[in-house]
């Protein structure tokens, strides 16, 4: 209960901090929504030409892209430091979080809000509304799938960025796998053979952020729900274990820091 109060307080502080620069906050939010619309226009043109890719049409892409954007936005908004964890570790900036009486991983990743995430988050809902699959039941499934996909995504970020405990700065590698996750996340899952699918459920769990949640939103199945639940719990557990193991190797640093 205390940790929930703490999270609410830190998110409030994040929001206050982001809103100190009103114009930057609004422009990032609107800019990101516009960016997503422009990016998605390519898929609209693509499906206008090919209509169908192994059973996937443009409506499926609306849902897949939507859920991916919302999950991405949710992590950016509430756990923004998950994107910067490698830098925080390698520059010795975990000291601050380690000196506080709260779970260090939760405190660290929740201590930053990336304002553009609001644009991604909202865009996802618009994209789902435009998909032609919209129902109120579907919307409830959308919210649940978004939470589970965001959990997988945050856990994946923590996992890859925690490698910095062992190998020093990993921000380039993390960006690389992050791009792979997002790129494969929006591809129709039907494009891939079984071997590729194994990779997309494990090493780069893009399927758990795009196509599986999209399937679950379109129609409830126990299979897709259990895939999402197992993926979210499994990846989060693994990420926590790896981060904790890494923390024992944390070496701090003496760099002068001028802001939190």
């Amino acid at each position: 209960m205390n940790n929930i109060k703490f999270l609410l307080a830190i998110w409030k502080a994040n929001l206050q901090s982001a809103m100190e620069y009103r114009i930057s906050f609004l422009s990032q939010m609107i800019g990101m929504m516009a960016n997503n619309f422009i990016y998605f226009a390519i898929w609209i043109i693509f499906f206008d030409r090919f209509k169908d890719v192994r059973g996937w049409g443009v409506n499926d892409m609306y849902v897949t892209f939507g859920i991916l954007a919302s999950a991405f936005g949710l992590v950016s908004l509430f756990f923004g430091n998950a994107f910067m964890l490698s830098d925080i570790i390698s520059k010795g900036r975990l000291d601050y979080y380690l000196s506080m009486p709260k779970p260090v991983l939760l405190h660290t990743i929740s201590s930053r809000m990336i304002a553009s995430g609001m644009g991604d988050f909202a865009y996802g809902f618009v994209s789902y509304a435009l998909s032609g699959y919209f129902t109120w039941d579907g919307l409830a499934r959308y919210v649940l799938a978004m939470l589970l996909a965001a959990t997988v995504f945050a856990a994946f970020l923590i996992l890859t960025q925690s490698l910095a405990f062992w190998f020093g700065t990993m921000s380039n590698f993390s960006n690389l796998v992050l791009n792979a996750m997002l790129t494969f996340g929006i591809y129709p899952i039907t494009l891939f053979d079984n071997y590729a699918k194994i990779i997309l459920f494990t090493i780069i769990p893009a399927a758990l952020m795009g196509s599986v949640p999209a399937e679950f939103i379109r129609a409830f199945t126990w299979q897709s729900l259990s895939q999402l639940l197992i993926g979210a719990i499994g990846f989060l557990g693994l990420a926590t274990i790896v981060f904790r193991a890494g923390l024992r190797r944390y070496e701090s640093g003496s760099a002068i820091q001028i802001e939190v």
């Binding site: 307080a9 830190i10 502080a13 206050q16 000291d95 009486p101």
Partner: peptide, 27 residues
């Protein structure tokens, strides 16, 4: 703890907001 080279106050917020946040952190 105070690390002279590592501030704990939130840079963009007034100090009172960090104090209030610390109140929640320290329950």
């Amino acid at each position: 703890t105070v690390f002279g080279q590592r501030p704990q106050l939130w840079y963009h917020l007034p100090a009172i907001d960090t104090f209030t946040l610390f109140g929640k952190i320290y329950e």
